[in-house]
Every structure is written in C-alpha cells, then in structure tokens.
Write a protein that binds this DNA or RNA. Structure first.
Lengths: 240, 240
DNA sequence: CGAGGGTTTGAAGTGCATCAAATAGTGTGG
DNA sequence: CCACACTATTTGATGCACTTCAAACCCTCG
C-alpha cells in the first residue's frame, strides 16, 4: 500500500474500503506541497479531481464579480474537498485556496465516481458524510441569523476546545484572526471587538493567538443561549 | 399500485424505483390532511418516519430556548423531508410545521434505510439529491452574507419566476409575506421596505401578493451583481 | 532598523431591528 | 351584504450592531 492510500484511509468515508477499491480510487493520485495563497481551483472550473489535505489548511469560498467573498468552509488536515462534483454538472461549486503551507493529495474524480456506482458501502458512507455536512450547514445558517458577533465567536471557540476537559482550558487559534473573522461572516475589526467583549463578559484571557479560561461554563452561558442545539456540540472540524 | 406509491414516484430520488422497492418503502405509509399551524415533529424528537408533501407547504425550522427561530427551509408539494435522519442519530435535526393546509404522506424511515442499504441506485439518487441540497445551502449562506435585504428579495423573486419566459413576467407569492421574510432572514417590516425599494429601483409593480414586471432584466441587474452564480439560477424549490 | 502584514482602536455612517401605530385585508356571525 | 374581530401589511421614529474608513500599534522577518 503506497503513501497516498494510507492517507486516504483516514477519511471517514473511505475507512471501510477494501484493498481493491482503495487501489482503484487512488490510481493516478499525486501529492504535492503548496504554499499560502495557492489557488487549487476556481468556482466554475470543470471538475476532474478531488483533494485530500495531508497537512495544512484550505479555504473554500465563492466570490462575486465585484470582489465580495463568502467563505464556504475552512478545512484542516484529514479532510477532502471537491468530491461533490461527481454529481451535478462536474463543475466545482466553490474556489479553493491554500491558507497555510499544505501538503495536498489529488485523486481522480472519475475513479471515485465509478467506484461509488458499484460499491454500495462507499455510497452509504458518503451519504452519511453528506448528511452530517448538511446538518452543519443548517446550524451555520442558524448561527448567522440568530447569534450576534461575540456569540458566534464564543461558539467557535467552544468548538475548538476539548469539550470534555475539566479545569483550565487553553485554545490555540488555528489560523489568522482575519481569516477566522471571514469564516464567521464578520469584518476583522468586528472580530477584534467581539473578542474584547468576550474578555469582558466571560473572563477569558487572550494572549495573541492563545486563549485561556478557567472553565467553559461562562462561554457556554454566553453563546449557547442563542443556539438551538444543546451544549456539547461536536460538529466543527477538529483543529489540528 | 396504491395512491401513496403513485405520489412518491414523483420525488426525484424515487423516480427510478422498481415496483418491489416501491412496495417496500411505501409499506405502512399513511396519508392525512393537516391545517395551518400543525406541528409534525420537533427538533430532537426520535425520528421514525419521513414525510412527503402531496399538497400545501411545510416550514422546517429550529428555535432557541428564548424563542428565536431560524428557518431551515420552506417546502412546496412534491418534496420530502425528515429523510436525512436515517443517518446521524435518528433524531430530527429541525422541527416541521404546516404553514398552508396540506396533505402529507408519512413513510417508515426504517424501510427506507434498509432499502437504501441494499439498493445502490437509490443510494446514488439520494447522494445526488444531497449534493444538490448542499450546493443550495452554500448559496444560501453566501446570499445572507453578501446580499442586502432588497437584493435577497429580488433574488427570491427571480427564482420564483419562469426564467425562460420573455416579455411581461407575473409572479404570485406562494405564501405569507411574513413567512417569506423569515425565509429570507429578515423582519416583516424590512421585507415590506425591501419590496418598496425594489419597486422604486427596478420598476416592478406590486398588487397584493402578485408582482409584475416588463422583464427580468432590471431585477437581474439589481440582485445578481451581488451573487457568485450566473443568472439563470434554477435552484429554488419550484412554486406550485 | 525598517518594511509589511496582521491587529487594534477610534470616529462616523448604514442597514436592519425594534417599538409603536396606522391601514388594508380576510373571515365570521348577524 | 354589513359590521366586527382579527390578522397581515405598511409606515414612522428611534436605537443598536456591524461596517467602513482612517490611523495607530505591534510583531515578525529580512
């Protein structure tokens, strides 16, 4: 089993692949390093490959003619993207940009498509992943409509934290504050002010990209009151 | 073939079912009329059935403890909902409320689940539907972050209109203005003002729930400039 | 040390929400 | 067919949250 095959097995939807299927899907796979700013593909491009993040972070986004940008998602290592284009019109539904130096493996979409067509287990795994994603998007829309900026940020921090941990909690922001801001649908200035407000209202301590607090309780009280889900909400992509 | 089976064949993901599969899925199906305001299930309920809208409209939503409500979707006849709970934890991820007198058929989720597990074609159809939905949600998030209220409304109207039609266009709003407002993530007052603004800026004519315009052009110019997709955007659920 | 990006702070403007009240529209019972 | 009750919609006035623009600050790295 080659390196690429070993990696892709880490993705939840490929976990149960047998070696034959694995071989088919990873045929023609290729890995490469990309530095910050690299555009992997553009919204509307014809989709021929999907991508796996071996290390680093990738931003998925869409933008209008006049330059306004909407973040679709920001993915850490261990995730794939571009794979949904096997349905639809074989067109990427968003653009993808590397936001931290990243090692990315690309795979053939055609191989994936044909394997899914005959491998029911794989189709089921993918369905289940899609359902999870859908739930997450529903929650995202909810957050943007009923949480204000500080609450949204608080919620983001909570999902970065190890939620089972007791005692002092330490969080390291996974990427630029400016990028987190856009991920949360707000301006950098608003982000900064939201963080100050959280500091004042919940007693978190901020030191550059590191955030510390004695317990998650006050943050939960502050953010989760404006959310329809119960607290231990695991949905965000795990940080590193 | 009974009535319920005939109906469910209209749903895109069930279009290709053979009669055996159809029979399995519709076993135990039952149809009933519901009036406006009827709650079909609540976010968090254990999911045992999924629903098909034979006629009417159904609102999917989530709400926080303090009563704030976020609309997930508003579905017309011909659509199903609650079906994604076959993955996840068998919990409904939203609440469902009838917003116009509706005839609803409910089906067993267990039957659907077991049929999907062995029917690859069905799994693929469902995957494709999920991908379509996902694309739509991405767009929804984009709209809410980069379009303002009048633009969002304009975009909504465009998707209600027959986009191929030439000449005078006539649109009938499919449900309450208040409900459209919440569907678009704004207050009723804001909706009303957004409509006035559209009237002033694009020359549409409003008469109660009926809207008329000489062509879609000015609306397209007004709304689509703040969107990453090209104009003929077909994604919204068709009206009646 | 200086350049440049990321971050914060300040001041001002805008869009939407909110509160309040008027108006239009709809269904009901008489 | 009318008057009433009730709801949907509109309009006006005000406030707040977030954005925008501008400038300072900070940190890293050559």
């Amino acid at each position: 089993m080659d390196e690429n095959q070993k990696e892709i097995l880490k993705v939840s939807i490929f976990k149960h692949l047998d070696s034959g299927a694995l071989k088919k899907i990873s045929a023609g796979a290729s890995s490469s390093m990309h530095s910050k700013g690299k555009i992997l593909f553009i919204h509307g491009d014809e989709a021929q490959r999907f991508y796996f993040i071996k290390s680093g972070w990738v931003k998925l986004f869409r933008e209008t003619l006049d330059g306004a940008q909407a973040i679709v998602d920001i993915l850490p290592k261990g995730y794939i993207f571009g794979e949904t284009s096997i349905f639809e019109d074989s067109i990427y539904p968003y653009s993808a940009e590397v936001v931290e130096p990243s090692e990315i493996i690309s795979f053939s979409l055609k191989n994936l498509k044909s394997e899914i067509a005959e491998n029911n287990q794989l189709a089921l795994s993918m369905l289940s992943a899609m359902a999870r994603y859908r739930r997450q998007q529903d929650q995202e829309i909810e957050h943007r409509s009923i949480q204000n900026a500080p609450q949204r940020l608080g919620c983001f921090l909570l999902r970065l934290a190890n939620q089972d941990e007791v005692g002092v909690v330490k969080i390291h922001l996974p990427y630029d504050k400016t990028l987190i801001a856009s991920r949360l649908g707000m301006q950098p200035e608003t982000f900064s002010r939201a963080l100050s407000k959280l500091k004042a209202q919940t007693g978190i301590r901020v030191q550059g990209a590191t955030i510390e607090m004695d317990s998650l309780d006050s943050l939960v009280r502050y953010s989760c009151s404006a959310c329809s889900s119960e607290f231990p909400c695991k949905d965000l992509h795990a940080a590193e």
